[in-house]
Amino acid sequence: MSEHAFSAPERRAVYRVIAERRDMRRFVPNSEIPEDVLARLLQAAHAAPSVGLMQPWRFIRITNADVRQRIHRIVDEERFRIAEALGPRGDEFLQLKVEGILECAELFVVALADNRATHVFGRRTLPQMDLASVSCALQNLWLAARAEGLGMGWVSIFDPRALADTLGMPADAEPVAIICLGPVPAFPDRPALEIDRWTVGRPLDEFVWENSWHRSKPAGLSSGE
């Protein structure tokens, strides 16, 4: 055990929040998040690592009811396009609850910043590392929300250009996520898409290889703590 390790109860708390994080779609209507809690969540997101310390994330808090409705319409329009693209599973997809935009206490749009091309450090051969950095910020936000007893849903069903135009984003900025935050009725013990029988998560040992593509995993790996 490293001398820099957290205590056993602290480690258990970290692993617990990771294991119990869920992508939430159902929220308690007419609820609120105290401003001090919201500030902690955003600070947790802002503490994420970023390539070249470029901090490419931008958080747009949606407080206008009309704008919230317009965002919901953009998502709903894309929902039907996805159903059409899914073919035989389209009707099944339309039965899924895929967002909580109108019910959640707080709504954010998270975007990649403009002028990203000026950041070369860490992105010369992998320009998508700006998106990886934003994803780290979103994961921090997700885990912090769960630790605060709040649900978070990451909505990715939208036309990026339509959403960017709705929010007046610069041409080289790019929306990445619509984030629903707030109190929830309960946290399920499994991902919602498993509960809804849409798909099933696969075990860790299918994803860990050794030395080259699709070689057997290192001996002794386990998916549990």
Rank of each mutant, 00 (worst) to 15 (best):
A177V: 09
L163N: 00
L42V: 05
E77W: 10
A137R: 01
E148C: 03
V208D: 08
T166G: 01
A39S: 13
Q139A: 12
K97N: 11
K97R: 02
R68T: 01
I18P: 04
E148M: 06
D130G: 07
M54Y: 06
C136F: 13
N115W: 04
E103V: 12
I33M: 04
I178E: 00
A8P: 12
G168K: 13
R11E: 15
F121Q: 15
I62P: 01
S133I: 10
I179T: 02
V98Y: 03
H46K: 11
L141A: 03
I71T: 02
D130V: 04
N30A: 15
M129E: 14
P34Q: 11
V176P: 02
E106G: 04
I101V: 05
W213K: 12
S212N: 12
R22L: 08
L167H: 00
I33H: 01
F187P: 01
R124W: 15
L38N: 06
P127W: 02
S222T: 10
P9Q: 11
A173V: 05
S133K: 09
S133D: 08
H72S: 10
F80M: 15
R124D: 15
R215W: 15
F93C: 13
R197I: 14
H119G: 06
D196P: 07
P160Q: 05
P56W: 02
F108V: 06
A65M: 09
S50F: 02
A105G: 08
P203M: 14
A48C: 13
F207H: 12
R79N: 06
R21G: 04
R124T: 15
A132D: 07
A19E: 07
L96H: 05
A44Q: 08
L167E: 04
P160A: 03
A111I: 01
A45F: 02
M54F: 04
G87K: 02
V184P: 04
F121A: 15
V98H: 02
A19R: 05
L96Y: 08
R197V: 11
V75E: 13
F121D: 13
A113V: 10
R68E: 07
A186Y: 10
G149H: 03
